[in-house]
């Protein structure tokens, strides 16, 4: 494995995690050695017959099961920033 500092910063931007120069420096060898360890799975030989998972999608009718506004205030009061019943974020355009 040869990850570079730039790779780490790119992963950070994909994952929306701000990473300082200094931290990227530290993380590069750490993540490199972890990927080196998990990379041993590439050596495993033999294939398995692909099975369909035992899990199935569980469907239900799209009917509200709670009263209108039953949870609205509880949910909204957790928001860092709100305007009435809207979550407030910065403009994106």
């Amino acid at each position: 494995m040869t990850l570079t500092k730039k790779d780490i910063q790119n992963l950070g931007s994909l994952a929306r995690i701000g990473i300082s120069e200094e931290e990227a420096e530290k993380l590069t060898p750490e993540i490199d050695s972890i990927l080196g360890y998990v990379g041993q799975i590439k050596d495993a030989v033999g294939d398995v017959e692909k099975r369909v998972s035992a899990h199935r999608n569980v469907m239900r009718e799209d009917i509200p099961t709670n009263e209108p506004r039953q949870y609205t205030e509880d949910v909204m009061s957790n928001a860092p920033s709100r305007e009435g019943d809207y979550l407030k974020v910065k403009k994106i355009l």
């Binding site: 950070g12 993380l27 993540i31």
Partner: peptide, 17 residues
């Protein structure tokens, strides 16, 4: 996310990514 998550959590999110 950079400041709210601790070191190990950030590390694992990066590995997963």
């Amino acid at each position: 996310r950079g400041e709210g998550f601790g070191k190990e959590v950030r590390r694992r999110i990066l590995i997963g990514t």
